[in-house]
């Protein structure tokens, strides 16, 4: 039996550490990072937007791996983790969409653009939502774990294909936007800060995944205990 109180304290400590690190990164990015030549100060949202987008896509890979694990190892724990990874993924896709939209307004002049990455993120959000609705619409048990895992594998493997096709679709209709020249033209300082922010965001994602999985397992064991109380 795990000592719940000890685990709680550990989770809290890790959470404070992770968010303090992220806060520091964002503070530095807002205050000390050099302004962008073309976009001025507005571009700073990149330090939030890009890391959350990458974390959102990483979650789909995590979901696929955990789902495969559920299928091959028949592990109920992996199933709980898969569900948590989809929830974390949904949070980050929504964050990406919101920040992308806020960034798009001053730079592109519109709230939404059918940019390949934004479009794929939108589809990813739909898929995460679909996965979560599907999971919650079934009664708990190995059957649900297996069906959700099958869906998780499909979603995880489809995301790169969706991304590829949407990118082609955009580039056939219009040249890639100037604003997204990215990488090579970026100031080395900016790249460093961006990478640090990315690490911070992935850590937040990992912490959320961990906390939520513990939470879901606890929920399951409470339910189990309430049943055993009933039957005695």
């Amino acid at each position: 039996m795990i000592d719940a109180r000890k685990q709680d304290r550990l989770t809290l400590a890790l959470g404070i550490a992770v968010f303090a690190f992220a806060g520091l990164c964002w503070f530095y990015a807002l205050k000390f990072a050099p302004p962008d030549a073309a976009q001025g100060e507005v571009y700073r949202i990149i330090y939030f937007h890009v890391p959350s987008a990458i974390t959102a896509f990483l979650s789909s890979a995590v979901l696929a791996v955990l789902s495969l694990w559920t299928l091959f190892k028949r592990s109920p724990t992996a199933a709980v983790w898969s569900k948590a990874s989809a929830e974390v993924g949904l949070i980050f896709t929504v964050l990406t969409l919101v920040t992308g939209s806020i960034w798009g307004r001053p730079t592109w002049g519109v709230w939404w653009d059918w940019d390949a990455r934004l479009t794929t993120t939108l589809l990813l959000a739909l898929l995460y939502a679909g996965y979560l609705i599907f999971t919650s619409s079934m009664s708990p048990g190995p059957q649900r774990d297996r069906m959700s895992a099958a869906l998780g594998v499909i979603i995880g493997l489809d995301v790169p294909i969706i991304y590829k096709s949407v990118t082609w679709w955009r580039t056939l209709h219009q040249p890639p936007s100037l604003l997204r020249s990215g990488g090579s033209s970026m100031d080395p300082d900016m790249v460093k800060i961006l990478m640090t922010c990315l690490v911070a965001m992935i850590l937040i994602g990992a912490w959320l995944l961990w906390t939520r999985s513990v939470n879901l397992k606890l929920q399951a064991s409470i339910e189990e205990h309430s049943h055993s109380v009933h039957s005695h």
Partner: peptide, 13 residues
């Protein structure tokens, strides 16, 4: 509701 919700995004490619 679920079938179209999952089916359509998956088949965009």
């Amino acid at each position: 509701i679920l079938y179209p919700l999952i089916y359509f995004p998956l088949t965009i490619p």
